[in-house]
Design a protein around this nucleic acid. Structure first.
Length: 285
DNA sequence: ACCCTATTGCTCATTACATCA
DNA sequence: AGTGATGTAATGAGCAATAGG
């Protein structure tokens, strides 16, 4: 590296221009940049590293007045090299620079800018992927929520019917009515939960949910949860949205018996064994 | 072993130029 | 021909790693 390879020409009509090699000014920095460079003596000078300073053959074809675009051939080779490895170790940098007739600094800059472009594209790809995933989930969620709303209104309707039957029922013993309400209430709640679980894809046992314990206070025909009672229309308490199910550990009314349920049919374990068909879920009471 | 300084290379934000519609 | 949008070469600031004194 000779000192004659880099110097400033204060007499240039462009101000302090950088000259390299045979004296051709190969770089004319941005106007504002050049202003900044003039009043800063401690900054690292452009093309200052030893390997950036080469023989005149690297610069003598440059026409320095305008910023030059790289030729398609140069870009092609750089792209191929970038595909191999997007980081540029010094050895490869000098080799590429010689091969392309560029300054090593130009090669380094091209790789830096190329990494930046790649990162931007990657961010766009990531965004598209996340958005698509989000849209899909949103669609699923809407569908599930509609199902849930439908089932809840069904529960409310049936509860109203049941309560009307209990209050105004004639010719039926009070005790058997209460038992029937209890059973129906349990079935309805289990059904809602089953639909919830099946829709959400959690699968498996739709009934036992250790993380969302819930009581079914069948004696009062109330749905109790860990959160709050959820009064439905007409003062009737209905299951709250997204409520949990009674757990094996905390099931409220624990006679320990196991029950299975089908889409609309509630059976005891004994009945299930007799019928042989597999229910869509189990719960314990 | 520790500190200081210089060097190098990176990312990031920005600027300026080239090109195209 | 003029203009705005876009792509890209190049820059400075700041940071971290490293080497050498």
């Amino acid at each position: 590296m000779g000192s004659g390879h880099i110097f400033f020409d204060p007499s240039s009509c462009h101000g302090n221009m950088l000259f390299l090699g045979n004296g051709d000014p190969v770089f004319r920095g941005p106007r504002s940049t050049m202003m900044k460079m003039e009043d800063s003596s401690k900054r690292r000078p452009f093309f200052s590293s030893p390997e950036d300073l080469y023989d005149e053959e690297y610069y003598d074809e440059q026409s320095p007045e305008k910023k030059r675009r790289l030729t398609p051939e140069q870009v092609h080779l750089l792209e191929k090299s970038f595909e191999t490895e997007n980081k540029l170790e010094p050895e490869r940098k000098t080799q590429l620079a010689k091969k392309l007739g560029l300054q090593p600094r130009q090669v380094a800059v091209w790789f830096q800018n190329r990494r930046a472009r790649w990162k931007t594209k990657q961010l766009e790809r990531d965004y598209d992927q996340l958005k698509s995933s989000y849209d899909s989930l949103l669609s699923d969620f809407d569908s599930i929520r509609k199902d849930n709303d439908k089932l809840k209104s069904e529960v409310v309707s049936l509860m109203e019917k049941l309560q009307g039957k209990v209050v105004g029922g004639a010719g039926v013993s009070e005790k058997s009515d209460v038992l029937e309400v209890d059973a129906m209430t349990t079935i309805l709640q289990v059904k809602v939960k089953a639909e919830d679980r099946l829709s959400s894809g959690s699968g498996g046992s739709a009934v036992v949910d250790e993380h969302s314990p819930q009581l079914v206070d069948s004696g009062d025909s109330y749905f109790h949860t860990d959160h709050e009672e959820y009064p439905g229309p007409g003062g009737c308490n209905v299951p709250p949205p997204m409520d949990g199910l009674q757990s094996e550990e905390d099931d409220g009314s624990d006679d320990g018996s196991c029950h299975g349920y089908f889409s609309n049919v509630f059976v005891t374990e004994e009945q299930h064994h007799e019928e042989g068909e597999e229910p869509i879920g189990w719960f314990w009471s």
